[in-house]
Each structure stands twice: as C-alpha cells, then as structure tokens.
Simulated assay, not measured.
Amino acid sequence: MYTLLELYFIFCVKVLGTMSTEDKTVNNKSSWPVVDAVEFFPGVNEDLSLVSWAHAVNSVAKLKDALEDDKIMMLEADVSAGQLEGDEDGGKDDIIPIMAHPPHTRSDLSLAAWIKGIIEANKDGKKKGAKLDFKDLSIVKESLEMLYNQVDSINFPLWLNADILKGPVEAKDEPIDQEQFLTLCMQYFPQATLSVGWKTRFTSADDEKAEYTKGMAEEMAAVLEAANVTQPVTFPIRATFVSRSLEALEWLVDTVPDSTITIWSPVSEPFDPQAIIALQDSVGMDCVYLDLPEAERKAVDDARARETSSGAKGYRFIPPAATAMVASAGLALASALAALYLYE
C-alpha cells in the first residue's frame, strides 16, 4: 500500500514528467508581460508616427548598424527557412530560421543571433523593439520555440507578422495559412502584437481596384474573431492603396479591439501623402505607425508641415454616405432657390 506522499511522487514522475514541451509552454507563458510601444518609447507620447524603423535588417552588418543607431526604435526583419552562408555542404537537417527575404535561402544571420543581438542591446541600455516578418509557415513553430526559450529576456515590444489573406490588386502570391499562424502565435506569445495583413500586388497608381475593400476588412475581422484573438493587433497597410481605402480602414480599427495600422511602402512606389494624413486625422495619431523609406516618410512629413503652416486641410475624407447626404442637401437647396426665383 502506498502512502499519500508516495502516490504524489509517482504522479509527479509519471504524469507531470511526461508533459510535452508545448503543454508546459501553454501553462507557463501567461507570465510574459505585454510590452506596449508607447510605454516602452516614452518620447512617442501617443503619436505612433514618432516610432522610427530600420527595415529589412537581414544581415549582420545591418543589424549592427540598427543597434548602434540611437534614432532607430523598431527593427523589422524577414524570417525564412534556409542555411547560413558558409554551410555549403549542409543538407535538410541544416535548414534553420534565417534572416532573409524570398527568394533568398542563405544569410549570414540566423534568427537566434538576431534576437540575441536585440536582447543584448536592451541589456546595455538601448531601447530596441523587434518585428519578425514570417515568409514561410514551415519555420514558424521552430522560430517561436526558439524565441520562447529566451522569453525571460524579451522585455521589449515583439511583433509577429505574416500576410494571412489575399488583398489588392488581385494578388497572386499565396498567403500563410491563417489558422496555423494565429494558433502558433497565440500559443507561444499571447501578449505579443500580431501584425497580420494581406498579400498585395501593385499595378498602377490609377488602378480603380487598388484598394483594401470593405469586404477585405470584414474578412480580416472575421478571421481574428474566429481565432479568438485577444492580444494587440496591427494591420500592415501598403501606402499606395490608402487613398481608396480610408472608409474600410477606419471601419477595421473601429471594429477590432486594441488594433492599429502600420503604413509601409517599397522605395519609389507612388502614393498620396495627403491620404496618409487624412487617415491619421480620421483614426488618430495614436493609431497609425509609419514604417516608410526615408524619401516616402519625408513626403508625409512635408505634407503635414504644409498643412500645419497653412491651417488648411489638404485632403479631407468624406465617406460615401456623407457624400450622398451632401449631394442631396445641395440638390434640395438648388430646387428651393429655383422655386423661389420662379415664384418671384
């Protein structure tokens, strides 16, 4: 006959000892704190456009530059499945999470080294946040497991990004499986910011289909609701599509709790800076990040400065419903004036 103490010991060895790493992860990760960008970067003061970015930090040299640059707050990089340079004889067993943008499958920087660099920089008193753009679903779980092993040292903003839906303009590339990506992110890092967007394709600046439609926004909101997402969310939005998408984007951030927008753009792609300003004015400066190349960011800042100095709005968004009301009111007024003229 076993004593109660002996039975408890057997239970611990046979039951708790056989729990998988995933089970332990699920039970323990709730202690990881939410690290909000506004609180982490106190100079932001509710104006998310003040958060500065280093984009495509996919090499040792770029990581070093971004960590040493005190002006840079958030580091964005692409995570792919591949091999480290110099591992020419490696096989399938040597495929690891590396920092590279497709179609590249080799890099001089692994995800492990990348996150270690940011952790060490923060320990040294620098304030740096991390945004990881996952390009390959096959590497997401391994990447998150590796990151979780460092969870006690990740005391800075962590964003997990992937394109999970098809977007404008009739994008051809396949998005990452939405269900698997969201499930893994919530399992390992339920307090991290989810940066979830659309696969996009640029055609021309005057393409009437160059917009995030209300249907696309509704689909995204439905996906997040179905997955029971409760952590912070940001939507990466391509700058060139903003001018035709203002109503849908405003609806999206109003509908999804604790959500923001992150405006991004390739270098030299045409866009309307006034549309970005209109979006900021519509949803609030505390709701729009600007992750733009230097020239594109300057275009937005210059447009804002001109608007501020002149005291006039250069671009005012009027929803279709409001436009219809204005038109109806104008027609009614014109009819009344015509009737009065005929009466006289």
Rank of each mutant, 00 (worst) to 15 (best):
Q280D: 07
C185T: 01
E269I: 11
G197C: 12
E247W: 02
V223T: 13
E247H: 11
P293I: 03
P293M: 09
V233Y: 00
T183C: 00
E294T: 09
F189Q: 08
F271G: 15
A205D: 14
F235R: 01
A248L: 15
D207H: 13
P236I: 14
E250L: 06
M220I: 00
M216I: 04
S282Q: 12
S204N: 14
G215N: 14
E218S: 11
S265K: 06
V253S: 08
I277N: 04
A205H: 15
A275N: 09
V229Y: 01
T203M: 10
S282K: 15
I263A: 03
I276V: 15
A221P: 04
T255W: 03
E208G: 10
A222G: 04
L182F: 00
D281L: 08
E269Y: 14
E225G: 02
T260N: 12
A239W: 03
P270H: 14
I263K: 06
E179P: 07
L224Y: 01
Q191S: 05
A295H: 08
Y212K: 02
E179L: 13
I263D: 05
S259Y: 08
E179W: 02
A221V: 05
A275F: 10
L279I: 09
I276K: 15
T193H: 10
T260F: 04
D281Y: 12
I237Q: 05
S282F: 08
L292E: 10
L246V: 14
K209N: 12
V242F: 12
V196N: 00
L224H: 00
M216E: 07
E269A: 11
A192S: 14
T234S: 07
V288I: 11
